[in-house]
Design a protein around this nucleic acid. Structure first.
Lengths: 221, 221
DNA sequence: GTCTATAAAAGGATAGAC
DNA sequence: GTCTATCCTTTTATAGAC
């Protein structure tokens, strides 16, 4: 959890918590992430970041040009791959209910994680000042996940397991249902631990509704 | 559209944009709303607020104690009544599809408005610093709307028009579907004008799916 | 209540030594 | 590359006159 200021340094390298080697640049990046996500862009100070990283402020400026550039770096740093939960195009199509349930759980686990929530918050809050960051964030996150799910739904449609005319729209509404109110509450900080029971209920209802609407015998849509 | 609490006071009143009378307190409140929503809490300055309001900084401090208190005032000022779109308990129950569609459109109109989006952004961004504000915001906004819709769905269930066992959960998922991806994109600033065609498609699919799932003959849920 | 002026502190960014 | 020390601007908050 700490950044491990146990700097056994020969030249500009320290041992991080994982036992590996972390360059000073990575240490700064990690510290900046914590400070920016905790306080937001406007209230975060370069002083606090330098202090958290255990380096001088000038070192921060040497690696990244300034506050705005550093912020851009921490936002783009690690995009949690939300799209990796969708079965690959080659994979066999099993029970759609089970597959969707697994996808929904994986989705919620990532999306409700404190770090993802904090990242979402800060990108959203600063979307006016950094529109291009918001675009990158959306494209590599929500949009990519929706496209991946739409592709999967398209395969289910072709194989006749489900009936999904507009896979793009259906994918969006599936994720919307899964997010539901939980994501909203997390964004507002109204829920510290992710309630497992609530997650269960939401997932089951979302999947059940989706299957009910898109099953081949259904007249809807 | 202004806050204009029509304070006809002898001293300390000016004419606002609407031609009505606005107390200096309201002028400050309106100016603070604009500055806070545009820049966020951390980047907003009391100087900018005073300048925007056309008063001196000391006047701002005289009315509200400081920056934090002023922020609290502007957040709680006007909670856009999202719950007012639900048919009152006494109203006759007509076609559920039409009613839900009207509710969905009204919901999106309010939720996607630039001011509502900006308000949501800033409350969310500062939920760590002002947890009680986030709670008030949630209770008077999303939660109130969901409860109102749940009550309406309960009536539909009783009258046999729809079959809604868990009206609370159903209401949450209905709003989630209606929000869909549009709200997310708006929060990230990726959509300046609210695309009417997209709104239409989302509303129709959300209502259609909801009806399909909860129609009395349906086996789902 | 409202203004001008100012205090006191913090923040972003840079200079220069090593 | 990294550090210490510093510059200059901005910012929150307050004094004191009217």
């Amino acid at each position: 959890m700490g950044i491990s200021r146990a700097a056994t340094r020969a030249t500009a390298t320290i041992h991080d918590a994982d036992g590996g080697m972390a360059s000073k640049r990575d240490v700064i990046l990690e510290a900046a992430t914590q400070v920016f996500l905790a306080r937001g862009y406007g209230s975060a100070s370069m002083d606090a970041i330098a202090k958290q990283a255990g380096v001088s402020k000038q070192t921060v400026y040497a690696h990244f040009g300034g506050k705005a550039a550093l912020f851009g770096a921490i936002v783009q740093a690690r995009s949690d791959s939300i799209a990796d939960m969708i079965p690959r195009p080659g994979a066999p199509v099993g029970d759609p209910g089970e597959a969707l349930e697994a996808i929904a759980r994986r989705f919620l686990t990532i999306v409700l994680s404190p770090e993802a929530v904090a990242r979402f918050r800060v990108v959203m809050a600063e979307s006016g000042r950094f529109p291009e960051l918001a675009r990158v964030f959306y494209d590599s996150g929500p949009k990519r996940a929706t496209l991946a799910l739409a592709e999967f739904l398209g395969r289910l449609d072709e194989s006749g397991v489900l009936r999904v005319p507009d896979s793009q729209l259906a994918a969006g509404q599936f994720f919307a249902m899964v997010r539901g109110d939980l994501f909203l509450r997390n964004l507002l900080g109204l829920r510290q631990p992710t309630d497992a029971a609530d997650v269960d209920a939401v997932v089951r209802h979302a999947v059940g509704n989706f299957i009910a609407v898109h099953r081949p015998s259904s007249a809807a849509e």
